[in-house]
Amino acid sequence: MRHILIRAGTVEIRARLLATPTADRIWSALPIRGSVQTWGKEVYFRTPISHDLEPEARIVVNKGEIAFWPDGDAITIGFGATPISKRGEIRFTSKCNVWAVAIDDVDQLKSVYPGEQISVVEADSEGRAWIAGHPMQETHRASHGGIHAAMCSSGDEGGTAG
């Protein structure tokens, strides 16, 4: 089973990759670094990869799901309502590919701000980050359990995130 660690400031969220083509593409591109952008209760960041929509792509995600937004080549993590959400949902501007599920609480993302640096690295099942096949000296664990990814754009809702 493949795991990643997402870090931004003091926030660390572990996640388990799903068996999808998007997950495979992201896994092969690790480590990924970017600059945080926000849209309501959603954090997203551009990546150096591109990928098409998958048949199961969705505009509404569940808390704890991590998605890839093909329209913006971005990883998206929703942890609450966006400006276009309907009551009780996490809704993106367009469809996204769900490729991972958070192990830790995505509500931690409330403390992440636009412009902050974010990274996604390979991790073992305990959440220890790995770089070039070796464990990193210093690792931390997030204190809760659940991640949500969501900033996607599907023409059926109009608008763009950000």
Results as ranks from 00 to 15, higher is better:
S94M: 04
R14W: 00
E89C: 02
A19W: 11
D107T: 14
R33I: 00
R33C: 12
R46F: 03
P83S: 01
R33T: 15
T22S: 10
E54G: 06
V98N: 03
K41E: 13
A100M: 15
E65S: 09
G80V: 05
R58K: 13
S94R: 04
L5Q: 15
Y44T: 02
I6C: 03
K110F: 00
S35G: 00
K95C: 04
F79Q: 12
D73T: 02
A102P: 00
E54K: 09
V11K: 12
A15S: 07
I103H: 07
R46D: 03
T82E: 01
T10V: 13
K63M: 06
A19M: 14
E54R: 05
P83W: 02
Y44N: 01
V61A: 05
I90P: 06
R91D: 07
I32D: 08
G78Q: 08
V101Y: 14
K63Y: 06
A29Q: 08
I103R: 11
V98E: 05
K110L: 12
G80T: 02
P70M: 06
E56A: 04
H51G: 01
P48Q: 01
G78A: 15
I118E: 05
V11H: 07
I66P: 02
P21K: 11
T38Y: 00
T76H: 11
Y113G: 00
P48L: 10
E54N: 06
A23I: 10
I75K: 14
R58V: 12
P21L: 08
G64H: 14
S111P: 00
Q117P: 11
R25N: 04
G9Y: 01
H51R: 04
P31H: 03
Q108K: 13
W39Y: 14
A29N: 09
F92H: 15
G34W: 09
A74I: 03
G40L: 04
I32P: 08
F68E: 10
L5V: 15
A102Y: 02
V98W: 01
T22C: 09
F45R: 05
G80N: 05
P55Y: 09
I66N: 06
E89N: 12
T22I: 11
I6W: 00
W99Q: 02
V61E: 04
A15V: 07
G72R: 07
K95N: 05
T10G: 12
S28V: 09
P48E: 03
I4A: 15
C96I: 01
Q108P: 00
S85Y: 02
S28N: 13
K41Y: 06
I90S: 10
A81V: 08
L30S: 12
D104L: 12
P114K: 14
K41D: 10
T10Y: 11
G34P: 10
Q37F: 03
G115C: 02
E42I: 04
Q108I: 09
V36N: 05
T82K: 03
I66C: 00
V36H: 01
D73E: 07
A57D: 09
R46M: 08
L30P: 10
V43P: 04
A74D: 10
L5T: 15
S35P: 00
